[in-house]
């Protein structure tokens, strides 16, 4: 398989990550503006909004908990929902481990704070082409972090007109990015069974289960299908 001993962690890799994630930083900025506006409508102050974006740094979790934000605040319901939305990270982190377990603890566990779907997906796509600079995740993540925190602050303080991302087709921006990455990751017939399994399970889970279970369940089913088939 791939040579996992040769994993590096350089400034160049970090800059490359920040550069390659530029389309995400731009569309993420627009989504952040929308989040800021909605956070204001849910009663969060500007300071609280930025604090949430900086400490949680997860668009998926933050948008979903706004729907639960009411007085009295359902503190544990919100924490639990955040945990469930984040469960997909467990699989994403597991996929990093062959490479990141070679790095020092600070680099590895500091980097994963900045792991979002997009910079993780871009890095895995780079790694599938043989690149091995693990600082890509951190570089892309920090750039996306700056874009996300700044834009939520601007949305919270200035916004008010940007309400409906679907009107601008922005909700599709990330879907398009993930599709393009998938095109690059396609290895041929080998991937057919795991990908079809993932799609089937995800659509079924999305239809019948509430929330975001479909990402975790589809990802688990698809990757296990690939592993079991290889064994046989």
């Amino acid at each position: 398989m791939t040579d996992k001993a040769a994993v590096t962690f350089t400034w160049r890799g970090a800059l490359e990550g920040a550069k390659r994630c530029l389309p995400i930083e731009i569309s993420g900025f627009a989504i952040g503006l929308v989040f800021g506006v909605l956070a204001g409508q849910s009663g969060l102050s500007a300071a609280e909004t930025v604090l949430m974006s900086a400490l949680v740094y997860s668009g998926a979790a933050q948008f979903i908990v706004l729907g639960l934000w009411a007085a009295p605040l359902p503190v544990f319901g919100i924490a639990l929902t955040t945990l469930v939305v984040g469960l997909r990270h467990l699989l994403m982190g597991a996929a990093l481990s062959p490479y990141f377990s070679k790095l020092g603890r600070l680099k590895a566990y500091g980097s994963v704070f900045f792991m979002a779907d997009e910079n993780w997906a871009l890095m895995m796509s780079e790694f599938s082409k043989g690149k091995r600079d693990a600082a890509f995740l951190l570089g892309g993540g920090v750039a996306m972090f700056l874009s996300w925190t700044t834009s939520t602050l601007i949305g919270r303080t200035v916004g008010g007109t940007l309400r409906d991302p679907e009107r601008w087709g922005l909700d599709f921006a990330f879907t398009a990015v993930f599709l393009a990455l998938l095109v690059g990751m396609w290895r041929g017939r080998l991937d057919l069974l795991p990908w079809a399994t993932a799609a089937l399970v995800a659509v079924a889970a999305h239809t019948w289960l509430p929330g975001q279970w479909y990402i975790l369940l589809g990802g688990l089913a698809g990757s296990l299908a690939g592993a079991v088939r290889r064994e046989a």
């Binding site: 062959p98 990751m185 993932a198 589809g218």
Partner: peptide, 24 residues
Amino acid sequence: RVEAWLDYIPGAILVSIVAPVVLA
């Protein structure tokens, strides 16, 4: 077997994220 599983995670996760939007 574990390596094969980890190897299939990125594609499977991305397919799962987009599938409901694209197909349904």
